[in-house]
């Protein structure tokens, strides 16, 4: 008989429960952000809902704090999976003092953390991807090739010049970088057939001299296995990989978007049935790795934590006005 995937992959039940807790925290923060948006407390909200298996699966394979991560605006679950807390995410979203991503400077979805080696990006789609290649080149030059860079983007970004240029350079120099495409089929409103000329983004890899891999992005184990293999290839000096995780965003692109204009409720519902969180719960229940009561407790704990984080974030002041010119230029050397 075939081994259950988590055993084949060497993941313990404790790890799976931790992942489930993390996914619930992420989804609970996501839920909260939309509420805060309606209350006028979080001006801009962008969702990760639906992408959790892709982001947690990759995070499991990333050596957090050692490998460099260059995310895009969809990657809240990734930032949390790597170690950012609900409070940190909420301070960022609400533009409060102590926002670890930007000190209240950046709009939500631009995650960064020096200690977690999460590198901040701009809002221009795909423009962060070359940075990952540069980080990987730096690791190569410094003889730290066993540190990989992982960068994330949607399928829409693969139409951008910067993406193509980054892929080209990474392929030429066979740099230690993993390109993760979170393909959710829509570039805001534009469906894949009108934004990507091939069915699998992974097929583009051939043109850049690297392997392209397609996985079900809502299958935590498939994502983890593929991300682990790609990161291992990078760390071994065997070059870059383009990993395409096919997934779906369960909410509008952002709170400025109305997704009813471009996709049917039936389509969204179909994907709700494949929501990666209940999917992981079913896996745990079916294999008697957790009971209903344990799963309920995990869910409740996540919600309680997010409630508490919201209370603290809401009580935190905005950055002091006197700090407005902070970090515009570095200190002059003595």
């Amino acid at each position: 008989m075939q081994q259950p995937p988590h055993i084949a992959l060497g993941l313990s039940p404790e790890q799976l429960l931790a992942v489930l807790g993390g996914m619930h925290r992420s989804r609970a923060v996501d839920d909260r952000l939309w509420q805060l948006s309606r209350q006028g407390k979080a001006h801009f909200v962008i969702t990760a809902a639906g992408h959790e298996a892709t982001q947690f699966g990759c995070a499991l394979a990333i050596n957090a704090g050692r490998d460099y991560v260059v995310p895009y605006y969809r990657d809240m679950a990734l930032a949390m999976a790597l170690g950012q807390s609900p409070l940190e995410i909420l301070l960022h979203a609400m533009g409060r003092q102590g926002d670890p991503a930007s000190g209240g400077r950046q709009m939500f979805g631009h995650f960064s953390s020096r200690s977690l080696r999460i590198v901040s990006g701009s809002s221009s789609v795909g423009s962060h991807v070359p940075h990952a290649v540069g980080l990987a080149l730096a690791m190569r030059i410094r003889g730290e090739g066993n540190i990989a860079a992982a960068t994330f983007f949607g399928e829409g970004a693969t139409a951008e010049g910067a993406w193509h240029e980054a892929m080209t350079i990474a392929g030429i120099h066979q740099l230690p970088v993993v390109f993760v495409c979170e393909n959710n089929y829509y570039a805001i409103s534009v469906p894949q057939p009108r934004e990507v000329p091939v069915e699998d983004v992974a097929a583009k890899a051939a043109g850049y001299g690297m392997p392209g891999v397609v996985v079900d992005g809502n299958d935590l184990f498939a994502v983890y296995a593929a991300a682990r293999a790609a990161l291992q290839r990078a760390r071994n000096g065997d070059g870059p990989t383009l990993l395409e995780c096919k997934t779906y965003r369960l909410r509008p692109h952002s709170n400025a978007d109305d997704d009813r204009k471009y996709r049917s409720a039936a389509e969204v519902e179909q994907w709700r049935q494949r929501d990666p969180i209940p999917r992981l719960e079913r896996y745990l229940l079916d294999r008697h790795l957790a009971t209903d009561a344990e799963i309920s407790a995990i869910r409740q704990a996540a919600r309680d934590e997010v409630d508490e984080a919201t209370r603290i974030a809401d009580a935190t002041p905005r950055p002091a006005v006197e700090t407005i010119f902070d970090h515009l230029y570095g200190d002059q050397p003595a």
């Binding site: 001006h43 801009f44 533009g95 409060r96 930007s102 209240g104 400077r105 950046q106 709009m107 939500f108 905005r318 950055p319 006005v321 700090t323 407005i324 010119f325 515009l328």
Partner: peptide, 16 residues
């Protein structure tokens, strides 16, 4: 505009 990248926080933005 004040000469900083536009801040996100409402109070800083209104200063800018």
């Amino acid at each position: 505009f004040k000469e900083v990248p536009m801040p996100y926080s409402k109070n800083l933005e209104l200063q800018t």
